[in-house]
Design a protein around this nucleic acid. Structure first.
Lengths: 148, 148
DNA sequence: TCTCGGTGTTGTACTGTACAACCATTCGTG
DNA sequence: CACGAATGGTTGTACAGTACAACACCGAGA
C-alpha cells in the first residue's frame, strides 16, 4: 500500500511536469503548427474530414475556439471548408494537399524526436509504456475527467 | 522493429492527447490554483523557499512570466517575498501558512483523483508505469527538448 | 569609482481559450 | 403546413499564460 501511494505520487508528479512543458516544447520544435493545430489536422486526416462540431466534441473545446482555429488553418491554406449539400448548416472540413503535406512533415519530425528520446529503450519496455499510457488515458477519458 | 515503431507511435499519440487536455482539466478540478501556480507552489515547498530566477530556470519560463505569476500568488496571500539581507537584488520566496494550506488541499484533491483513476491497477503495474514516466521525463529534460 | 553581470519589474503583444449573443438552417409537432 | 425548438457556426469580448525587450536596481571586480 505504501508502494502504491509512492508510485501514484510519482505518476502524478511526472504527468504534471510533462503536461506543463508540452505546449512550449511543441511550439519550439515546429513553429508552423501548434499542438492544438496539429491535433486538429491529425483528426481530420484520421477521419477523412468532419464537422467543426465533431472536433469540438472530441477535444472538449468550445465551438468558438474550433471556429477560430479552423479559420486560421483555412487562411494558412491547410484546411478547406465545403458546404454540405445535404445540410446547409454544416461545413465539412477537409485537409488540402498542402495540409496533408505539412501534417506529414510535422508528424515525421515528431516521430524522429520521440524515437531519439526513446532510443535506449528495448522493445518490451516500449510496449509496456505504451500499454500503460493507453490504459491511463482510456480511464481518464471514460471517466469524463482527465488529468489532475 | 515494427513493434518498436508501433509502440512509439502510441506513446507519442497518448502523451499528446494527455498534454492537450491537462491544463483545462486541472483548471476545472481546482479553479483556485492553475496548473502553473500549483507547480510553482510545489517547488517552493519542496525547496523550502527559493528565488524567482530559480523557478524560471527550473521550469524554463521567462523571468517576466515568473514575476507576474508570483505577483498573483503574493496578492492571493499564498506566497511572500522576503528581501535577502545578504544581497538586496534578490527576493527569497516563501509559502505563507495560507499557501501551505491551499497547496495541501489541492495536492490532496489531486491525489484522490489520481487514486481513483488508478484504482484498478495493481502494485507492480503502477510501479512499472511510474518507472517509465521517470525514465522518459529524465531523458526529455536532460536532452533539453521535451515533448513533441 | 565605473562599468558589467545578475535579479527582478513593467510595457506590449500574441495565442488559446471560454462564454454569451447572435444568425442561419433544419427538424418535429400541433 | 407553420412555427418554435434544436443544431451548426461566427463574432464580440474577456482573461490567462506566455515571450521579448526595455528598464531599474544592486553588487563585485578592474
Amino acid at each position: 500500500m505504501a508502494d502504491r501511494d509512492g508510485s501514484i505520487e510519482i505518476i502524478q508528479r511526472e504527468m504534471t511536469a510533462f503536461a506543463r512543458r508540452a505546449r512550449a516544447t511543441a511550439a519550439r520544435m515546429h513553429p508552423e503548427l501548434s499542438l492544438v493545430s496539429y491535433t486538429l489536422l491529425s483528426h481530420l486526416e484520421y477521419q477523412g474530414g468532419c464537422r467543426a462540431t465533431d472536433l469540438a466534441a472530441h477535444y472538449t473545446l468550445d465551438k468558438s475556439t474550433i471556429s477560430r482555429q479552423v479559420g486560421a488553418l483555412e487562411k494558412a491554406g491547410l484546411v478547406e471548408r465545403r458546404l454540405d449539400p445535404t445540410d446547409h448548416r454544416v461545413h465539412v472540413l477537409h485537409l488540402t494537399d498542402r495540409g496533408i503535406e505539412v501534417l506529414a512533415q510535422v508528424t515525421d519530425a515528431r516521430r524522429v524526436a520521440f524515437q531519439e528520446r526513446l532510443a535506449e529503450w528495448n522493445g518490451p519496455d516500449l510496449e509496456k509504456f505504451a500499454e500503460c499510457l493507453l490504459r491511463y488515458n482510456d480511464a481518464a477519458s471514460r471517466g469524463g475527467m482527465d488529468i489532475e
